[in-house]
Lab assay of single mutants.
Amino acid sequence: ESFERTINIAKGNSSLGMTVSANKDGLGMIVRSIIHGGAISRDGRIAIGDCILSINEESTISVTNAQARAMLRRHSLIGPDIKITYVP
């Protein structure tokens, strides 16, 4: 059984350190890789294959690959914290 989780990740000045791609069925974006030493890796809660539904409350539903990457990059630049809703 999968259910949504919303977490805050304190990334400070470091990068999030993950790559994503659009989910084929349009439901959010899938975590493709996690870079060791990045904020996601240090936090430890998000794993490869998890589905991200929103970043800082901006929905990732029906985004393209390019939009998913641009959204991740944009939110990575805002502030020291990032809020991610995902399904493990």
Results as ranks from 00 to 15, higher is better:
L53Y: 07
G37C: 04
Q67T: 11
N65K: 10
Q67F: 05
N65M: 07
S54N: 09
N23C: 12
G26T: 06
E1N: 15
H75P: 06
S33L: 00
A66D: 15
I55E: 00
I82Y: 06
I48T: 11
E1P: 07
L16M: 06
E58T: 06
I30L: 08
P80N: 13
I61M: 14
S59G: 05
I40D: 02
T60N: 04
H75Y: 13
G38R: 05
N56I: 04
S76T: 12
R42V: 11
N23E: 10
G37E: 08
Q67A: 09
G37K: 06
E57G: 15
E1D: 11
S14V: 12
S14L: 14
V31H: 04
G49F: 03
E1F: 15
T6R: 06
L53E: 03
S62W: 09
L16D: 01
K11L: 13
L72E: 05
G44A: 06
R5H: 09
G44C: 03
K24D: 12
R5V: 10
I30V: 13
Y86F: 11
D43S: 03
S59E: 07
M71Q: 04
I84S: 00
G79Q: 08
T64Y: 04
R5G: 03
G12I: 07
L27Q: 15
G12R: 09
I52D: 03
T64V: 03
T85H: 06
K11E: 05
G37M: 00
G12A: 08
P80L: 07
I82W: 07
G26A: 05
D43F: 01
G26Y: 02
S76L: 04
I55P: 03
F3M: 15
R73F: 11
L77K: 13
A10R: 14
C51M: 12
A68G: 07
L77E: 15
K24S: 12
H36E: 13
F3C: 13
A66P: 08
A39K: 02
G49V: 01
N56Y: 02
M29Q: 06
Y86A: 02
E4F: 13
Q67G: 11
T19E: 12
R32I: 08
S2Q: 09
I48G: 02
N65E: 13
R42D: 09
E1H: 05
N13V: 09
F3S: 12
I30M: 09
V20T: 04
I84C: 04
I35V: 14
S59V: 05
A39P: 08
E1Q: 10
S54W: 06
I78P: 15
L77G: 14
A10P: 13
S14H: 14
G79R: 08
N23P: 11
G17R: 01
V63Y: 08
S21W: 07
K11W: 04
V87Q: 08
G44V: 03
I55V: 12
R74C: 06
G38F: 04
I40H: 04
I46R: 03
S15D: 15
N8G: 05
I78A: 15
P80Q: 12
I46P: 00
A10V: 14
E57F: 05
P88G: 07
R69N: 15
L16E: 01
K11T: 13
T64I: 01
G38M: 05
T6C: 08
S21A: 13
L27N: 15
A70K: 12
A39T: 08
S59Q: 10
A68Y: 05
N65D: 15
D25T: 11
D25Q: 13
H36R: 14
G44P: 03
A68S: 05
I82R: 01
L77H: 15
L53V: 12
N23Y: 06
S54Q: 11
M29I: 12
S41H: 15
M18C: 06
E58G: 02
R74L: 05
G37S: 07
S14A: 13
L27M: 15
R74E: 10
D43M: 00
N13G: 11
R42H: 07
C51V: 13
S41Y: 14
A39G: 04
R45P: 00
G26H: 07
Y86P: 01
I46L: 14
S59P: 10
A22L: 07
I30D: 07
Q67H: 09
I61N: 10
A66N: 11
S76F: 06
I35P: 05
L27I: 14
I52W: 00
L27P: 15
G17S: 00
N13I: 07
S62D: 15
A39N: 04
M71Y: 08
F3D: 09
T64K: 05
A47W: 04
A70P: 04
L72M: 12
P80H: 12
D81F: 10
S15T: 12
S15H: 13
V31L: 02
I9E: 02
I46C: 00
G26D: 05
A66M: 08
A47Y: 04
R5F: 05
S15G: 13
A47R: 13
D81L: 08
D81M: 12
H75E: 08
V63T: 10
S33E: 13
I9P: 03
I55R: 01
T19S: 10
S59Y: 04
A68P: 02
I52R: 00
Q67E: 14
I34Y: 01
A68D: 01
S14N: 15
K24V: 11
I84Q: 00
N56C: 01
L77I: 11
M29R: 02
A68V: 07
S14C: 13
K11Q: 09
G28C: 03
S41I: 05
